[in-house]
């Protein structure tokens, strides 16, 4: 998948956060689902979707932001927070340093202010390439600061979830991030503000059991793996193979745990519609333009 072909050694995330997603070092990627070798620009131009089999590549934060944000609207918050190593786990600090170099982000989540079709929001995007998007103290802290700031500034919150769960290397401190983020979201909600959670492949473990499942609206990307326990753990527990499609986005939709599965080409419009519908405020000039344009041709009914 995409994240294996990361650009290496670049630390210029902020500088060109709004440039089009960059072509990675390898000019060709192999789709792990269909095995097709594809020119990487074709994938990037196609929302990180395999043009051959339509399966979804994982999207690095930078590319995700440019997929939904108005050009130039993203301002990153809370970078460079001091690293915590509560277990003094051998090799952990070195591993973090290496991950920063490889991924170009400072932790497994990027947070900041964004406009989506003019709608202002606080947005967090998790990075699967950074230790499988695992949540330790810094991930929890960045998200909590973002949510608290959104509560103060009366902004809706959007989080793109993508995580293997709590970060083992920080032990119990990682577990506490679940309660910390959930508590911050409760306050945000009690202030009458909107939280939109987007579940992408994979969203599991402690992230599912905290902020991922707490959205006023929960969207999921097609085929994303979403679950509390990983499939292998369940198979070991029950001693049998899991059926096809178990814990995929479509399965969660069927069981009532996500509101809607959203295709990437419709992501931006879906987000801005939901934010506007749930208390978002659009700048005045955009509002008037939209009124002029509204008419029969604009009518859209989405049933799927």
């Amino acid at each position: 998948m995409g994240e294996k072909n990361k650009r290496t050694g670049q630390n210029d995330y902020m500088a060109d956060a709004f440039a089009e997603p960059q072509v990675p070092d390898g000019l060709f990627w192999k789709c792990e689902k269909c095995g097709e070798i594809i020119y990487s620009e074709d994938i990037v131009a196609n929302y990180h979707i395999c043009p051959n089999c339509q399966s979804y590549f994982r999207v690095p934060p930078r590319a995700r932001i440019s997929m939904v944000a108005d050009k130039g609207s993203f301002t990153e918050w809370d970078t460079g927070l001091p690293v915590s190593d509560p277990l003094r786990f051998p090799g952990y600090l070195e591993k973090l340093e290496r991950m920063r170099e490889i991924t170009g982000v400072d932790e497994a989540v990027v947070t900041g202010f964004v406009r989506i079709d003019g709608m202002p929001a606080a947005m967090g995007v998790m990075a699967s390439s950074f230790m499988m998007g695992s949540m330790g103290e810094i991930v929890g802290e960045k998200l909590t600061r973002m949510i608290e700031r959104a509560t103060r500034e009366r902004l809706p919150v959007v989080i793109f979830c993508c995580s293997g769960g709590a970060r083992m290397q920080e032990g119990i401190v990682s577990l506490m991030q679940m309660a910390k983020t959930a508590g911050a979201l409760k306050r945000h909600s009690d202030a009458g503000l909107y939280y939109l959670s987007v579940l992408t492949d994979p969203t599991t473990g402690g992230v599912v059991a905290s902020f991922a499942m707490l959205g006023d609206t929960i969207l999921a990307e097609p085929g994303a793996l979403i679950g509390f326990a990983g499939p292998r753990v369940i198979e070991q527990t029950i001693g049998q193979k899991l059926p096809d499609g178990f814990q995929r986005a479509e399965f969660l939709l069927e069981h009532g745990f996500v509101d809607k599965i959203v295709r990437r080409d419709r992501l931006r419009k879906t987000l801005s519609f939901l934010i506007e519908a749930n208390g978002g405020v659009k700048p005045q000039e955009m509002y008037t333009t939209r009124q002029h344009n509204s008419g029969a041709a604009q009518k859209a009914v989405e049933i799927d």
Binding site: A179, V208, A209, S210, G227, A229, I238, L242
Partner: peptide, 26 residues
């Protein structure tokens, strides 16, 4: 730990835990 079974997943083990953290906090 919370049970890791198929039915637990179908009925939203993650959601149930998340909801408790959320509501208990307040």
């Amino acid at each position: 730990g919370a049970f890791c079974g198929m039915e637990a997943e179908e009925r939203g083990q993650g959601e149930a835990i998340a909801r408790n953290l959320y509501e208990m906090s307040a």
